[in-house]
Design a protein around this nucleic acid. Sequence first.
DNA 1: TAGTTTAATTAAACACTGGTCAATAAAAAG
DNA 2: CTTTTTATTGACCAGTGTTTAATTAAACTA
Lengths: 189, 189
Amino acid sequence: MSPRKAVAQELTQDMVMMAARELFREKGYQQVSMRQIASALGYSHGSLYYHFKNKAELFYAMIETDFKLLDQWLDDVMKREMDDKGKLSEVLLAFIRFGLTHKSQYEMMFLLADEEVKSYVNKGPNESYEKFAQSLVELSKREITIQQTWSIFLSLHGFVSHYCRCDETFEEVKSLAHSHVNFILKSTG
Amino acid sequence: MSPRKAVAQELTQDMVMMAARELFREKGYQQVSMRQIASALGYSHGSLYYHFKNKAELFYAMIETDFKLLDQWLDDVMKREMDDKGKLSEVLLAFIRFGLTHKSQYEMMFLLADEEVKSYVNKGPNESYEKFAQSLVELSKREITIQQTWSIFLSLHGFVSHYCRCDETFEEVKSLAHSHVNFILKSTG
DNA sequence: TAGTTTAATTAAACACTGGTCAATAAAAAG
DNA sequence: CTTTTTATTGACCAGTGTTTAATTAAACTA
């Protein structure tokens, strides 16, 4: 038997996360097994449990960086040279664009109902949402209320979660996204 | 052995669907196994496959009647004695109420990404949506465009799909639902 | 009534899943 | 060189959806 590999190829959390991210992206959380991840790396599935407590935790470690990426995207928009009104719609659009260019991540971040995963993914969505809401209030010079930010978020979420299920890319639904954003913003002013 | 039961208790599709509906309602699609359904009925799990090709087909048979129920709910609102403006918000509210009082069905109807199930659920959502959109156009005396009905639907869908994930009942989020509906309708006037 | 066909149920089996764990050996520490 | 720590393995568990040969109750036929 061979109960240990040479150190040159020792497994790391990052290696696992990279393999997992790719597989999850292709097939989604439920459709990827720990054994598939392990075999993509050339290790036995048991070894994954040395680095991560379970599938949900591995998943959460991955998704954590995706929340940061979303924050980054929104920050980038905020830093652009543009009037607040323009920025406002760009922020909403950025949210949609993020969701549709990271479909399976978005699914996991905001959509997955798996109890096991939900217990890990709690702060993530909240913090990202807070940042998002704060931006809206600022950009609108307090004309958008906290109540309204929630409705705006949910309305965007509806768009993204619907188009997450089909094969269309962001580019293909871009104009629909624009008109949805316009629709949403009409409520606020 | 006992490879056959007395005819008095022969298994029917309806019996299976009733047991399944109850279990799915309690725990959701993924969390209910064919073995659980069978044992709730007092039969071996193999027998279910005599009546349904597989789990997804059993679920779809169930969900089909739920699309009809949603149509019914919307129809009922349309038949009420009320001005069109009031009806409009009642229709939107009815959609949310339906979604949150039939969470796992809603998930299946509009949310589930499972390829197996999606291949079954195709006409259902489209037909229900058409009916919904038609109502909106009528009630608004054509002031709501087809484009807008889609945004309205997606915005409602966002609300429902978000609250589908948590344990809250419709009653508990009723006031939030009201304010979301108001938010949406502000875009249309 | 006896023999045959059909329909429905069963248990065993298959190939999976997430997860645990004793055994093991490579690497590090003493 | 010995001991300890660390990482890997593969067998194992309980569970999943699904298939299937065997079985038999019921319906049909002669």
